[in-house]
Simulated assay, not measured.
Amino acid sequence: MPSPKPMKIQGRLWLEQDERSLAGHGRIDLLQRIAESGSISQAAKSIGMSYKAAWDAVDVMNNLSGAPLVERSTGGKGGGGTHLTERGQRLIASFRRIEEEHRRFLQSLGEHIDDFADTYQLIRRLNMKTSARNQFYGKVSRIKHGAVNDEIEIELPGGDRIVAVITQESTQHLGLAIGSDAIALIKAPWVMLATGADDLKLSASNRLSGSVVKLTPGAVNTEVILQLRGGATVCAIVTNDSAAELALAEGRPATAIFNASHVIVGVPA
């Protein structure tokens, strides 16, 4: 399979006046040709533009700039012609300087084009909208196929692992494979908290240990933020009575527990 061609970053540059386009590459090139030829008809012909379109562009630039950029002279020894004013010449010079800086800027961005894919996916993840409070990005580390459902293990960047149970159809539809990117979503009310959970025997597949970093009591429930050993955080919603019974406090160790069936798996678009 042939190697893909390297990616390049391209961009367009134009100047605006009163929120209207004053000049871009096409109009600046037209001005440049007028300055060189002294004739708007020759300038228009050299860049493949009609005479009328060229004068329309000149009229727009003259009107927007506040002072003429191009002037037409008639009669005289040379039979008349078209020339740029000093303001028109300054506009070309300024645009060329800006154009060069723009070229250097794009060249600098292009040196980091290899990071584009990862950065783009990160932006997509950050812009994802969902009602699930807990959103974890990781990579599929294990797939255990069953008769109907598959067990998907997702390893987070800090080393923590989340297990989800989804249908085989979902596994295929999402294109999940070992090493592929995946996103695990868990609603906060689905997360149970426990202290001293090492001695508990539970059917829940997911046990993530950490310490409480934030408590926000409400009228009935308390929002608890648990920072995992790997650095990620988990949000749980428990009753105020449960928070008191567990003696939850900032800095105290706790374990987040949730069923694999409560984990929704997604993939970056």
Rank of each mutant, 00 (worst) to 15 (best):
K77Q: 11
G78P: 00
G79F: 09
G79E: 10
G79Q: 10
G80A: 11
G81N: 11
T82E: 12
T82R: 15
T82C: 14
L84N: 04
L84R: 07
T85P: 00
T85C: 06
G88I: 00
G88M: 03
L91F: 05
A93K: 07
A93F: 01
S94H: 04
S94F: 02
F95M: 07
F95L: 11
F95G: 03
R96V: 00
R96K: 14
R96A: 00
E99W: 02
E100R: 14
E101A: 11
E101V: 04
H102A: 14
H102T: 01
H102N: 10
R104K: 11
L106D: 01
L106W: 01
Q107Y: 14
Q107R: 15
S108L: 14
L109F: 03
E111A: 13
E111T: 13
D114L: 13
A117E: 09
D118E: 13
Y120V: 15
Y120L: 12
Y120D: 05
Y120H: 13
Q121N: 10
L122P: 00
R124T: 05
R125D: 09
L126T: 11
N127K: 10
N127T: 07
N127Q: 10
N127Y: 01
M128F: 14
K129E: 13
T130N: 14
T130W: 10
A132W: 08
R133G: 02
R133C: 02
R133W: 03
N134D: 04
Y137L: 12
V140Q: 10
V140S: 10
V140P: 01
S141P: 03
R142F: 03
I143H: 08
I143L: 13
K144F: 05
H145P: 00
H145F: 12
G146F: 10
G146H: 10
A147W: 02
V148A: 15
V148K: 09
N149F: 11
D150Y: 02
E151M: 13
I152D: 03
I152R: 06
E153H: 10
I154H: 09
L156C: 04
P157I: 12
G158R: 05
G159F: 06
G159N: 05
R161G: 00
V163M: 15
V163S: 10
A164K: 03
A164L: 06
V165A: 09
I166T: 06
Q168N: 12
S170P: 00
S170E: 03
Q172I: 07
Q172A: 12
Q172V: 09
H173M: 11
L174D: 01
L176E: 06
A177C: 03
A177R: 11
I178V: 13
I178R: 12
S180C: 11
S180R: 13
D181N: 15
D181Y: 08
D181T: 08
D181W: 08
A182H: 04
A182G: 03
A182I: 05
I183N: 14
A184C: 08
L185W: 03
I186Q: 04
I186G: 02
P189A: 14
W190R: 12
W190T: 11
M192C: 13
M192D: 05
L193F: 05
L193V: 06
L193I: 09
T195V: 14
G196S: 07
A197K: 07
A197L: 09
D198T: 15
D198P: 00
D198H: 15
D198W: 14
L200N: 01
K201C: 13
S203A: 12
A204W: 01
A204Y: 02
A204Q: 06
A204I: 04
S205D: 04
S205F: 07
